[in-house]
Design a protein around this nucleic acid. Structure first.
Lengths: 191, 191
DNA sequence: GTCTATAAATTGATAGAC
DNA sequence: GTCTATCAATTTATAGAC
């Protein structure tokens, strides 16, 4: 049995609210109401509105990094590894589109210190993607002129999902992730 | 000689502020200060903070649509047309990254009526891209399984630039747009 | 740990003098 | 068309009772 603490209820409410209205468009009253609590209850469990954002953003960044690192480690063939990495990264953004929106779009609302902390995770994600491309080029299986630029572009496919993706829409996350993986291989494989 | 009206000064100030802090994170006092005016002066030239956003967003959407439509009309060969469309669309997002950020990320801050108006422009952009792909497939020059999905993915390359692009950074808009155009051809051309 | 009540500051927008 | 002054509402966060 999973017990949901008041602290977690507030985090879930913050995810909903921040994803829907953005950090600055969300009031602490709104978060409290979504969690079924009074405005004052927020501050019993969290220091500030920004610390609530940081909690969500940090957890989201860690989860996205974990997904792409696991995918990178799961395959040895560079082409299949690329396919899995892009599939999983895009699928994560579809399956966690609300958290993903907060991760990607509320980055500037973090304090400088908190922003610096998630920035290191972002760099790890980018490096993981670049390393996978560079290794495929070294093995003579991939053909990538501009490794950093192509890595960014591949990640953009997943990232940009959160701008418009709605669960229950006409396309499933699996469908979009499969398309992205296919496009990624065309972008990076030898022809 | 170009005369800049007070109204335009306020629009430029709003572009800066909205791109930097988002619509809800920007105060009308901030906009006024950037334009070198008192807070009250804003309302002499614009009805509300949201109408300032709408002015910027509408003009931005129209400009982006214009760029991709001109590019589509400038070439007849489907491959070269695709290259030009993606090059120009990505270049526009790099050259207008602040307006682009407002176009893409402050869409939900518009009133429902204003949002509906820019939504029709968005659909035109997507249709222009889809038509170009479908025509190339018909001519047997492009190979695209999922035309709507691929069109979205191609546009994502340019759109996602505005999330991180800074003028004067290590990569020029031309460089990125050239890369995107090359990747687009690999994604959509017959192999 | 929850609430009601409220402080203290900020916000979008307006009034009215010049 | 600009300003100073200000209103009315809202905001983040806290105080203190239970």
């Amino acid at each position: 049995m999973t017990t949901i603490t008041a602290r977690e209820r507030l985090i879930n409410a913050a995810v909903e609210a921040f994803a829907e209205k953005g950090f600055h468009g969300t009031t602490t009253r709104d978060i409290a109401a979504r969690a079924g609590m009074s405005p004052a209850a927020v501050y019993v469990h969290h220091d500030s509105k920004e610390s609530l954002l940081f909690t969500v953003s940090l957890e989201g960044h860690r989860s996205a990094l974990d997904v792409i690192q696991r995918a990178a480690a799961s395959e040895t063939d560079p082409v299949e590894r690329l396919r899995t990495m892009i599939y999983q990264f895009s699928l994560w953004h579809a399956d966690h589109s609300r958290v993903g929106r907060i991760v990607q779009y509320e980055y500037h609302a973090l304090t400088p210190e908190h922003r610096a902390e998630v920035a290191t995770i972002r760099r790890s994600i980018e490096r993981t993607m670049q390393d996978a491309l560079a290794d495929g080029v070294d093995q003579g299986v991939l053909d990538v002129d501009d490794v950093p630029g192509t890595a960014f572009s591949l990640l953009s496919l997943g990232v940009d999902l959160v701008r418009w993706f709605e669960p229950g829409g006409s396309r499933s996350g699996h469908e979009l992730a499969t398309l992205h993986a296919e496009l990624a291989i065309r972008m990076a494989s030898r022809r």
